[in-house]
Amino acid sequence: MKSVRKILAGLAYYLFIALMTAFFALPLLWLALTPFNPAATLAVEIPTRPTLDNFRAVFGNDFAVRALVQNNLILAIGTMLGTTFVAALAAYALSRAKIPGRDYLTYVLILFSSVVTGTAAMVPIFLIIYYLGLIDTYLGVILVFIGGLLPAAIFIMRDFVDGIPHSYEESALVAGATPRRVFLDVVLPLLRPGMMVVAIWAFVHAWGAFLIPFIVLRNPDRMPASIAIYSFYTEAGTPNVTLVSAYSLLYALPVVVLYLIVNWRYGFRFFGGIKR
């Protein structure tokens, strides 16, 4: 009697796991299969006659291609470089400087980050960018991205800086280096794992963002892929599923590849600079 119940419980458990797996795996499976289907629907089906025609059609759409290979790259790489560099400087200062209440400062920063990128800040952000004369520029979008990502980036980075023993910097100071050289020669190289984490994270954020570029940009030629994807909708607003799926696959690929590279190179170990 008891063993029957045990078997049933085990069965229910694995049934639940299978359902959850299917729930999360199906969209991915759809994304992997549909682009190769000449006449796709929203159902997951293995294409009987796989074709690359969908990709040909996508590459025929200049607007969408420029969005992906030019606009998205500019926005994401710009955001990545800006966020990583400024976060490294700020985190170093926050970790090493003796400011009273600096821990509170970090937490208040985190709190504000959700406000800056949130919907509530849309109007002020638009106005600021407008008065700066940065409406419809890449720089305007990148600055808003950096502003929104920095607090969390600083927070992540500070943990890495805190993990670097002070004696490295002190030994460089006594050896004759100026504080700027200490930062460039010793701190930045030791901070590389943390900078990789922040860089990837910022890149992925900027890559997938929709709202900010939609608000700040005007010219269709500067729109990123998240907006350009609407060019595969009909006038009436119905998506062309085959083309949307093909474009989505191309859109998702760089992020997946980036993750794989970092995983292979650094194994996503969140290690700081501690040795011994």
Partner: peptide, 29 residues
């Protein structure tokens, strides 16, 4: 500041920069 005192220090944990070769470490000053 330390760099103008013209002293050399050996730390308890040696503080050899992990990302540099010994040549770069010893040659850093």
């Amino acid at each position: 500041p330390p760099r103008e005192r013209d002293v050399a220090m050996v730390f308890q944990d040696y503080a050899l920069y992990p990302h540099m070769t010994m040549l770069d470490n010893i040659g850093y000053p």
